[in-house]
């Protein structure tokens, strides 16, 4: 197992900047519209030093003079040096970010938080369960597995989206299915008559997915209610709770465990999370008052 861990080692993430509250300046090199309301920004550092990160980590992304939001990194951890963020346009800051012109700059603090630790799945089967824009935070982990495909057993990606038009990274899904030995199953909540694929909640895919629960590590990302249902369904199939990793979303602000905005009982999710095991999260996820 040690050899496998070394063979699939991920880049060592950068520590937050010397003063983690001071953003680095990145230039927008390219903006791609992925769906009706979701865009991917490719950013390059003005100081020339690429930002190294572990899959699952996030940054605090700043639109100058407007505000700062936590956004997961969606690019390849072994990639070209451009920092990729996939952003859903849902508020003032995200609207400003996705409309930042090419050549203009944004602020970046981080990377912050725990990663997926996808190397822990090496030697066994891997199941990714994704809902909605949750595919963005999981994409670096999937790209890591694709790059080290021979180190993993069966790899399954179960993806639920709202409608066919909301399916994110459709070319990636096709490539992973056709060329990378990943079993990709997509389902949507609602679809027009012309849709030939599946309709149903993403958890309906879990009982029929091909993996050995006793040697499976699962990575789940999406709305909290969807993650909880998925984790319970995985556990029903026999996957150990500590091998079910979930990414929790809360209102991150400082990113360094000081302000308490992201507190979940004893956890500060910006430093203890966002990625945690279901063994730790289960008692916290069933308590609405937390």
């Amino acid at each position: 197992m040690t050899e496998l861990l070394e063979a699939t080692a991920q880049p060592t993430p950068d520590p937050p900047t010397p003063d983690p509250m001071v953003p680095r300046v990145f230039r927008v090199e390219r903006t791609r519209q992925d769906t009706r309301d979701t865009y991917t920004l490719e950013l390059s550092p003005l100081d020339g030093e690429p930002l190294r990160f572990a899959p699952g980590q996030f940054t605090m992304l700043q639109a100058w003079g407007i505000g700062e939001v936590p956004i997961s990194i969606s690019g390849d951890p072994h990639g070209s040096g451009l920092l990729e963020h996939t952003i859903r346009n849902v508020g003032n800051v995200t609207r400003a970010l996705v409309h930042t012109s090419r050549g203009a700059t944004v602020g970046v603090r981080g990377p912050f938080g725990t990663g997926w630790e996808v190397e822990r799945g090496a030697g066994g089967d891997v199941v990714f369960i994704v809902g909605g824009i949750g595919l963005a935070p999981l994409r670096p982990a999937i790209l890591h597995v694709v790059r080290h495909r021979d180190q993993y057993g069966r790899v399954v990606l179960l993806y639920g989206a709202r409608t066919p038009d909301d399916i994110l990274f459709a070319p990636d899904l096709e490539h992973w299915q056709d060329d990378c030995g990943i079993d990709v199953a997509v389902t949507v909540d609602n679809a027009p008559h012309s849709w030939r694929g599946r309709v149903g909640f993403v958890t309906s895919l879990i009982p029929r997915a091909g993996f050995d629960p006793l040697r499976t590590t699962a990575y789940v990302c999406g709305p909290e209610v969807m993650m909880r249902s998925s984790a319970l369904a995985l556990r029903d199939r026999g996957v150990a709770a500590d091998r079910i990793r979930l990414s929790m979303e809360r209102s991150m602000k400082c990113g360094i465990g000081l302000c308490g905005h992201c507190q979940l009982r004893e956890l500060f999710l910006c430093v203890d999370g966002p990625v945690l095991g279901f063994d730790r999260l289960e008692p916290l996820m069933s308590r609405w008052e937390l």
């Binding site: 849902v90 809902g131 639920g160 709202r162 609602n190 149903g200 309906s204 999406g222």
Partner: peptide
Amino acid sequence: HRRLEAARMRMLDVYGVRR
């Protein structure tokens, strides 16, 4: 029972924009 549970989840529109 299983389909009712799934239908309830989808009624929540969990992938929609939450404000």
